[in-house]
Write a protein that binds this DNA or RNA. Sequence first.
DNA 1: CATTAATATGCCTTGACAGGCATATGATTA
DNA 2: TAATCATATGCCTGTCAAGGCATATTAATG
Lengths: 111, 111
Amino acid sequence: MESSFAIIGEPNRRAILGLLASSERSVGEIERCLRMPQTSVSKHLRVLREAGFVEARVEAQRRVYRIRPEPLREIDAWLAPFRRFWTARVDALERHLDRMSKGSKTGRGSR
Amino acid sequence: MESSFAIIGEPNRRAILGLLASSERSVGEIERCLRMPQTSVSKHLRVLREAGFVEARVEAQRRVYRIRPEPLREIDAWLAPFRRFWTARVDALERHLDRMSKGSKTGRGSR
DNA sequence: CATTAATATGCCTTGACAGGCATATGATTA
DNA sequence: TAATCATATGCCTGTCAAGGCATATTAATG
């Protein structure tokens, strides 16, 4: 399961990440929120953990999972070259860039 | 092959999209640039096309493919709730937001 | 019309992985 | 220590999709 991209291809995994986006949760909480079998949650969490999307803090018998941004950032970065397709308010400009090719260093801090 | 996320899970597909990000290309050009069998390119393009990532213009015997932004935008949108994890320069602010919840419109960029 | 170029499609095999179930591990409390 | 809660792991099975290969389709050109 190499790439970060493949990891978020799985809907349940996205759901888990979505949940954790708002705040950290224990496995049991995730299980209940998403109504998915505990064993399944644990497995997905393992994948997410090994890919660096989440990390766990041990708290008594439970493990509280939280987001780790790096892989998501990587994905965000990959999207960069495409942003001009919807960021460019001026259509003409976009068309222009299209044939002038490489000029993708669109300086201006977008985000 | 439902979701847009699953689509970009495939490395070759990302490569194709990456190529098209700079400018539109024919199947043959993609084939040569990426050194991947034509039949494979065509299949991936089909998947990308059906998922709305690309569209083709017919030009004589060749089909020139170009990016269609929508699905990529969808992915970009999905990332939104996570951006605060790396956008927040001030750690304290982030912690704060964590319990104050929604306030993610972090507009103002310095630098 | 025959040939060649450009692209698409069908079939087949193989490998990955999600889901279900049972069970193991580890920590807690009585 | 036994019983229980919380989480992880192992095995098995079905599914689905990528890659290879041959071939079909469509357009251009001689």
